[in-house]
């Protein structure tokens, strides 16, 4: 090492290369340790939401479904009970909102819950409150999803989302 020219470009390139290789190795080792933990924590969060839809059952994600509307983000099958959909729809706020709805095997809406939204408080947000939730969760297959006066855009988005969910439900059930 002593008789090696420290100012030569080759030395600098090799040193930098070795440095990057070591760092890359360390990063990939740490990633392989932490990645499963992160994934598990994220899955646990999703599971906690799924539990609200159909409590006390096991879930399995359905990956191969066809959705023409493009609103449905993920589909989970609740064993012997129904199917849960995670839906992203656009109402008044152009960023849209995400909600979950569960459709039981007999075709009724078993659950409806918003996950994230930026709709106007007191106006569009009424589509995520108890009054409207109880209306939606009393629906059966073929019923029209009710609209909310004053929150037409938001509730229409919910309606489109649930209709899209029914289409996929018919295909996967």
């Amino acid at each position: 090492m002593k008789n090696f020219d420290k100012d030569s470009s080759a030395y600098k390139a090799v040193l930098l290369g070795i440095m990057c290789a070591i760092c890359g190795l360390v990063l990939s080792v740490v990633n392989s340790i932490t990645d499963p933990i992160i994934k598990e924590a994220e899955l646990a969060e999703v599971k906690a939401n799924l539990e609200i839809m159909f409590p006390g059952t096991s879930y399995e994600e359905i990956k191969d479904f066809t959705d023409e509307s493009g609103l449905i983000q993920s589909v989970y099958r609740a064993k012997d009970q129904g199917v849960v959909f995670k839906i992203h729809a656009v109402g008044y706020n152009s960023n849209g909102f995400t909600f979950m709805t569960g459709i039981a095997d007999d075709g009724r809406v078993a659950g409806y819950m918003v996950l994230e939204h930026g709709e106007t408080n007191g106006i569009g947000s009424r589509a995520f409150e108890d009054d409207y939730i109880s209306k939606v969760t009393s629906l059966n297959a073929g019923d029209d999803v009710p609209l909310l006066t004053g929150a037409t855009l938001t509730s229409t988005a919910v309606k489109t989302g649930i209709e899209a969910a029914y289409k996929v439900f018919d295909a996967v059930k």
Partner: peptide, 13 residues
Amino acid sequence: ASLVTVVSMVVHA
């Protein structure tokens, strides 16, 4: 940068 990435992955986990 490598140290920060390691710390951020550990915190995330």
